[in-house]
Simulated scan of single mutants.
Amino acid sequence: MKRFRSMTYPYIAWIIAIIVAPMLLIVLYAFTTSGNSVLTFQFTFENFARFVTDKVFMDVLLRSLYIALITTLICVALGYPIAYVIAQRGGRSNTILILLITMPTWVNMLVRTYAWMGILQDEGIFNTILSWFGIGPVSMIHTSFAVILGMVYNFIPFMILQIHTSLAKMDKSLLEAANDLGATPVQAFLRVTLPLSLPGVISGITLVFLPAVSSFFIPKLLGGGQYVLVGNIIETQFLTTGDWNFGSAISLIMAVIIMISMWLTRKADIQVASQGKE
């Protein structure tokens, strides 16, 4: 037993180095103020008060939550039917479809976002196609539409895979029993398939909402710097203005929001699981 415990020490040290230590530094900077040359270790809420009391920053926070919510809803609306169709397939076709869904994730997300810049610009593919029908050019780049489209494209595979996993694990005999009891296909879906797939939907919501609310390079590239979200403010504070204290405070606020979101989704998942057992 001691031998196996000793084998965990390198992993514990690694976790401390890459997770615990950076988080402690963020907390330290968030609750301190910087002097001209040295860090003043003085407990203060000034950095948090600055963010909360500034209407511009609060508007950016609300915009980030709104964009993340819209992205999540679109991913659920598009991802569920796709996952359902894939789950109905068997054998080789199922594997091929899953492969097609996951293949874009093999390419770096930054590269994929750059590709959308070329597609959405005024001389891009979309406007070229529209010009064939005498429409356009339509300004799509550097808009909220472009930002949401980029987020949906990058994050929807996570939603599809989570829902597909729940649907694939579902006992098909339950649908047969529902049919034997006289349920229509719609009734069988609403009373059997949908409730059993909700854990996958909740997991997908977690995997989409959390990165969407903290994303910074998608709005930076597709929004052209004109569409600022919380992630962009944090990046600016650390890399441009050099105000690590304020940037750390914003990061801590976002960490709390993310933890609350995870707690709510986890609570919903437990309630869904308990209702399923009943």
Score class of each variant (00 low, 15 high):
Gln271Cys: 04
Ile82Met: 09
Phe246Pro: 03
Val186His: 05
Met151Glu: 15
Leu78Thr: 10
Ile148Tyr: 14
Phe31Ile: 14
Thr193Ser: 06
Phe238Gln: 01
Lys172Thr: 11
Asn108Met: 03
Ala183Met: 05
Asn94Glu: 15
Val20Phe: 06
Gln226Tyr: 08
Leu28Thr: 15
Gly225Ser: 12
Cys75Pro: 05
Ser6Gln: 10
Ile233Lys: 14
Ile202Asn: 10
Gln121Tyr: 03
Met170Arg: 09
Thr32Val: 12
Ser274Met: 12
Ile74Tyr: 07
Ile160Pro: 00
Met262Gly: 15
Gln121Arg: 14
Leu221Lys: 14
Asp59Thr: 07
Glu123Ala: 13
Ala87Thr: 08
Thr184Phe: 06
Ile141Phe: 01
Trp14Met: 15
Arg50Phe: 12
His142Phe: 15
Ile156Cys: 04
Leu39Asn: 13
Phe57Cys: 01
Leu62Arg: 13
Glu235Thr: 10
Asn179Gly: 04
Trp116Met: 14
Ile257Pro: 00
Leu65Ala: 14
Thr95His: 10
Arg191Ile: 01
Thr184Met: 09
Ala183Trp: 00
Asp180Trp: 06
Val85Thr: 13
Thr44Gly: 08
Ala13Asn: 01
Gly91Asp: 01
Ile98Glu: 08
Asp243Arg: 07
Leu73Val: 15
Pro81Leu: 03
Asn154Gly: 13
Leu198Gly: 10
Ser203Asp: 12
Ile16Glu: 02
Leu207Gln: 15
Tyr11Ile: 07
Gly225Gln: 12
Val111His: 02
Gly182Thr: 13
Arg63Trp: 03
Ile19Arg: 06
Tyr114Trp: 13
Tyr9Ile: 15
Leu65Asp: 06
Arg5Thr: 00
Asp243Gln: 10
Leu252Phe: 08
Phe216Lys: 01
Asp54Val: 02
Ser144Lys: 12
Phe145Leu: 13
Phe126Ile: 14
Thr241Met: 11
Ile19Gln: 07
Pro22Arg: 04
Gly276Lys: 09
Gly242Tyr: 03
Gly118Met: 09
Met23Leu: 11
Met109Trp: 02
Gly136Thr: 09
Met7Thr: 07
Leu69Trp: 01
Arg112Phe: 08
Ile257His: 00
Val192Lys: 00
Ser203Met: 12
Ala183His: 03
Val56Gly: 00
Ile257Trp: 00
Gly242Lys: 02
Ser6Leu: 12
Arg112Met: 07
Phe45Asn: 03
Gly150Trp: 05
Gly35Lys: 13
Trp132Ala: 06
Met58Ile: 07
Met170Val: 08
Leu99Ile: 05
Phe48His: 03
Thr95Asp: 11
Gly35Met: 08
Leu120Ser: 02
Ala17Pro: 08
Val111Lys: 05
Tyr153Met: 13
Val186Glu: 06
Ser144Asn: 14
Asp122His: 12
Met23Val: 13
